[in-house]
Design a protein around this nucleic acid. Structure first.
Length: 565
RNA sequence: CGGAGACUGGCGCAAUUGGCUAGCGCGCAGCUUUCGGGUAGCUGAGGUUGCGGGUUCAAAUCCCGCGUCUCCGACCA
């Protein structure tokens, strides 16, 4: 490829909107361009990288025994409704209507169409497991896309689906994907941390996410020296005993000044640390039901954990002051019992004797409140967010560390989430009809690219791993206004290309050396070859790796051989 | 969805209390110059100031509506 013909140039600045390194560099080096919020064009350079990444993913996914296919982008809305997926995905679903008024959703993920597809084949135990995948454009009306390709509204995803007789059978395929993902990460030169995760909108039981640790990550993962790694949303931690040695005192209603509303006010008034007070956080589910989370004062509610304990069908959102008014209360005055609401308590409620708070009124509040004796919640479980330094819930000894990360891929054990409502069945050996056990496995292509750039760049630009670089060699020609140098450079370019190497040849006769070097660094191709009047006089070209600063001189005649070996 | 802000050639910005032909830098094109880490000079092209309406002798500037984008919070590959 002649650089002078390449559509999409480098630019000196990427504008002031790109803060994340991968976003800025991909923009500046001419890999991507934004169309609108969360929608990016892949320029020729970007598409070359995407194709490389796609091929790597394909190779390893095929190794799990998966077969590639592709389903339509528009899914009949009816199908999603049947599986109750429309509620789970909610506002993130894009919808379109055809000329007959039939409603479709733009595919955000494909569990339901895959389940529907499998259903059409009347499968039996002999057909199982079924393992299929596709690469296709996905649409999600994300509330807030950000970080360039890190989070977008439209993206290519590799999504795979497997169908099994039972969980034991799924586990085997699950393991293969686990291995495939490790292999993919290795080929992309990405360091991944595998964490336990919550299934969120996909549904099902325990699952894993493959995370790339980076400061620009929007997820937080929890790590322990014992090897335990989890998404913050599921992280198990020990709630330490605060004062269980103290005897339980009789419940009392005491006078309390009206200004005592917040945790800080409580501390000022009673002089005890946060952990001695009761805290309520109020949410509303998709049906308008008020949900009150009750938790020890020093802990924060984790919405994902809360939704799980509660078994929420849709989204939980924070309650408004109006919602509280309908309960007959207001912020700071919410009671830990007695309101017409669903109460969900955290495990930490059992680590304190004689809580302060719980039923604040204008001039009174309760003290010496004990969980189990004075009040109980309908639901009780782990709804608190782990914090840096908390004790690991698995080894019960080491301290947890919190690390920022990006979710590069996931493998989901989704069980009967879809086969149940969609009647996804198979005929077993004994002739009886049984539900299919399902798994799904996703990797976002653009995000994978962003992860690679995020972890492979320097001050000057991108430093592509060989495996995904848009070209094998960046040939820089200097002094091309001298005909004999230009001729030699073009000859070398043809030679390299003919040998099967993908070459980007900076053939601009008018750009200065500095400009060409800066562009080469920015674009980030691993190998840079330089031919100039000077090098030509010595019968050599200069060879430099993007990742190193040393330069090697190589005889022009043996360059092809050198690069091939 | 809630909150905040922005919108002027491709990019970054300017234009006084409403007042002249809407400027500057980068980039782009041509010529000259330079020739190993973003050279320098001359010349030139490029704008219905996001869109629609209003106020005014006069609107980039004031008012209303809409749109788009960015950032901060709750969601996901």
């Amino acid at each position: 490829m002649l650089y002078s013909h390449l559509f999409g140039k480098t630019s000196r600045s990427a504008g002031n909107k790109a803060v994340v390194a991968s976003h800025r560099l991909l923009l500046q080096a001419g890999y991507i361009r934004q169309l609108s919020t969360g929608r990016y064009t892949l320029l020729p350079l970007g598409l070359r990288v995407a194709k490389k990444v796609e091929e790597i993913i394909r190779r390893h996914v095929v190794a799990t025994g998966a077969q590639e296919l592709v389903v339509p982008t528009l899914h009949p809305l009816e199908l999603w409704q049947k599986a109750n997926r429309d509620k789970k995905f909610g506002a993130a679903m894009m919808k379109v209507t055809d000329r007959n008024g039939a409603e479709f959703t733009l595919g955000a993920t494909a569990e339901v169409v895959m389940m529907d597809l499998v259903n059409q084949f009347n499968v039996t135990y002999k057909d199982l497991p079924i393992n299929v995948f596709q690469f296709s454009q996905k649409f999600r009306d994300e509330a807030r896309p950000s970080g360039g390709l890190l989070r977008v509204r439209e993206f290519v995803m590799k999504d795979a689906y497997s169908f099994h007789q039972d969980e034991a059978d799924l586990v085997q395929t699950y393991q293969k994907y686990w291995q495939a993902y490790q292999d993919i990460a290795q080929d992309l030169d990405l360091k991944v941390t595998v964490v336990e995760s919550d299934n969120g909108a996909i549904g099902g039981s325990i699952s894993h996410e493959f995370m790339v640790e980076t400061d620009v990550g929007e997820d937080t993962i929890v790590k322990c020296d014992c090897g335990y790694c989890a998404n913050l949303e599921t992280a198990k931690f020990v709630r330490q005993d605060i004062n269980l040695g103290e005897p339980q005192l009789p419940l009392q209603i005491v006078d309390q000044p009206e200004w005592v509303e917040t945790m800080e006010d409580n501390i000022k008034h009673y002089g005890k640390p946060k952990s001695h007070y009761l805290k309520n956080v109020v949410y509303k589910d998709s049906d308008g039901q008020i949900v009150i989370a009750v938790i020890r004062g020093d802990l924060a509610v984790d919405k994902a954990k809360l939704a799980k304990v509660y078994g929420a069908k849709g989204d939980l959102e924070p309650a408004t002051d109006d919602d509280l008014a309908k309960l007959g209360t207001r912020p700071g005055w919410v009671h830990c019992w007695g309101h017409p609401a669903v109460y969900i308590g955290d495990l930490s409620l059992k680590t304190v004797h004689n809580f302060i708070g719980g039923q604040k009124e204008k001039t009174t509040d309760s003290v010496n409140v004990n969980y189990g004796r004075d009040f109980e919640c309908q639901f009780f479980g782990d709804i608190a967010q782990a914090q840096e330094g908390d004790i690991c819930g698995v080894c019960q000894r080491s301290k947890l560390r919190l690390v920022k990360a990006v979710e590069f891929g996931n493998i989901f054990n989704i069980g009967y989430t879809y086969s149940q409502p969609m009647e996804g069945n198979f005929v077993d050996k004994d002739g009886s009809l049984k539900k299919l056990y399902m798994g799904s496995y996703g990797i976002g292509l653009g995000r994978a690219i962003a992860c690679v750039v995020e972890t492979h760049h320097d001050q000057q630009g991108i430093v592509w791993p060989k495996s995904v670089s848009p070209f094998d060699v960046h040939l820089v020609g200097l002094d091309l206004f001298h005909q004999e140098v230009a001729d030699a450079a073009h000859r070398l370019y043809r030679q390299l290309s003919d040998s099967g190497l993908a070459v980007l040849f900076d053939d601009r006769p008018d750009a200065t050396a500095g400009v060409k070097f800066a562009d080469a660094d920015l674009i980030g191709i691993p190998v840079r070859l330089l031919i100039s009047q000077k090098s030509l006089a010595g019968g050599v070209v200069e060879y430099k790796l993007r990742s190193s600063s040393s330069i090697e001189k190589i005889k022009i005649d043996s360059v092809v051989q050198f690069l091939k070996s």
